[in-house]
Nucleic acid binder design. Structure first.
Lengths: 122, 122
DNA sequence: TAGTGCAATGCAACTTAGTTGTAACTTAAT
DNA sequence: ATTAAGTTACAACTAAGTTGCATTGCACTA
């Protein structure tokens, strides 16, 4: 288990389990948000989907992980970092992290998703 | 059937049916994007959900209607207008249309969804 | 206005991402 | 090592949206 993941467990005072460190390790190494299927493929530990979703829910409530919906009725997950936007291409379904500067918005923004057609598909 | 709806049928040269005009009429009168259940409640014409979703898909492909996913695994629909963003409150689940000005983005943007906590819930 | 072809509809069965109940098992603290 | 509290696997479930197909209805022609 990497130092970064260990620090997360320490900080939030939750039990260290194989399932949890495995999920976080995959998310740490990802360069883009991933859905359940994609995370499952990359994980070395086998686990039930119920376990996966319950842990993801816990991570989310602790602010460790951030989730959003794409246009395929699937949820995508990533480790929480600074607020940034995601561009989802409706043609190739690739997800790209982008920086956006926007005017003032009422309320706390936790996630920004743009959909459309990417440069390559245009 | 209102003039506005009639104009849509004329423009796109598609068959006028009760189901179609009923769906469009509801969307025309809505001040906010609606999901299937909400549209169903407001419609006077009864129709099967298969009919609803097939027509919505047709409207979408013609650019008449715009769709996006909220955080409840449901799709929300509205008549296509100028590009604007939607703010979805994760507490009260209300959807608010907002204007955002953002820097240049690669590709064509068709939808923008922000999620977070709205002013009232904060 | 009656007839006709093709598109739209209703029904029912299906798909699938995510959820829930529960008994068995781990973790971590004593 | 013991033990209580939290975690896991398994299987059954939920519900939004989809699909196949027989029937119906729109709109065009004569």
């Amino acid at each position: 288990m990497s130092e970064q993941i260990k620090a997360i467990f320490d900080k939030h005072d939750i039990k260290i389990t194989n399932a949890r460190s495995s999920i976080l390790e995959v998310l740490k190494n990802a360069h883009t948000p991933l859905n359940y299927e994609q995370i499952k493929e990359k994980m070395e530990t086998m686990m039930d989907k119920a376990t996966f979703y319950r842990n993801i829910a816990k991570f989310e409530s602790l602010g460790i992980v951030h989730k959003f919906e794409s246009d395929d009725r699937k949820w995508y997950f990533e480790l929480s970092t600074s607020i940034h936007a995601h561009f989802i291409c409706e043609e190739c379904h690739q997800i790209k992290c982008i920086d956006v500067s926007m005017g003032e918005v009422e309320g706390d923004v936790k996630s920004i998703v743009l959909k459309g057609t990417c440069k390559a598909c245009k």
